[in-house]
């Protein structure tokens, strides 16, 4: 609170006279109380407004993503793989590696985009590897790099979480990307 001590009433005409004289003795408790009340009230009121404004600007709800249907378990036999495109357009390769669906990694979903420079990998059944034709990058069935630039850089294929519901294979896909918004607008 800035000073002005003393009674500054309408009667005071001279601005200079109303200046604080700095005398501590003249500052009573009440004077502080009024100042503190004012400061408190102003801070509380406008502070709350600011907090509402911040909450307004903070993203309200980000689309957390969702579990999306890929195929039924029967559609994908052990050793087989299939392409899957998420609604946002990300390309995935879903592969079944074991007969027993309960087994760990019985199914895996790997991004088919090479982490090196974004080319599309494909599964080579005879070599049992994902191969990227751009710079001869290669990944094993789990998406770990085994050759080429990704191996040098230690870049694996991105894995998407999978889960089995009954006899359905579901994949977790992240929320709406900007690409989907754009494609929807174009449609």
């Amino acid at each position: 609170m800035q000073e002005p001590s003393g009674d500054i009433r309408g009667e005071r005409t001279d601005a200079v006279e109303s200046r604080p004289d700095g005398s501590e003795s003249r500052r009573g408790f009440l004077e502080h109380a009024a100042g503190v009340t004012m400061a408190g009230g102003l801070t509380a009121g406008y502070g709350m407004l600011v907090s509402h404004a911040v909450r307004f600007l903070y993203p309200s709800e980000t689309d957390p993503g969702s579990w999306q249907f890929v195929c039924t378990l029967d559609d994908l036999q052990p050793g087989d793989s299939m392409p899957f495109t998420t609604p946002a357009g990300a390309k995935l390769v879903v592969a079944r590696q074991a007969e027993d669906p309960a087994q760990d990694d019985a199914f895996i979903a790997l991004s088919s985009v090479c982490p090196h420079l974004g080319c599309k990998v494909h599964w080579e059944a005879n070599n049992e590897r994902f191969f990227c034709p751009c710079h001869n990058g290669a990944f094993d069935a789990q998406g770990n790099p085994i050759a080429g630039p990704p191996k040098a850089a230690g870049q694996s294929l991105t894995r998407f979480p999978l889960r089995i519901e009954g006899n359905l294979l579901m994949v977790w896909v992240p929320g709406t990307g900007i690409s989907e918004v754009i494609s929807e607008t174009n449609a």
Binding site: P4, I8, E11, R12, T13, A15, G45
Partner: peptide, 24 residues
């Protein structure tokens, strides 16, 4: 006899603050 002016600061400022809060 009354003086015909008063101070902008802090007197009138407080009036404006009051008006502002009432408006809010």
């Amino acid at each position: 006899d009354e003086p015909d002016h008063f101070n902008f600061f802090p007197d009138h400022l407080l009036t404006e603050l009051t008006i502002g809060l009432v408006l809010m």
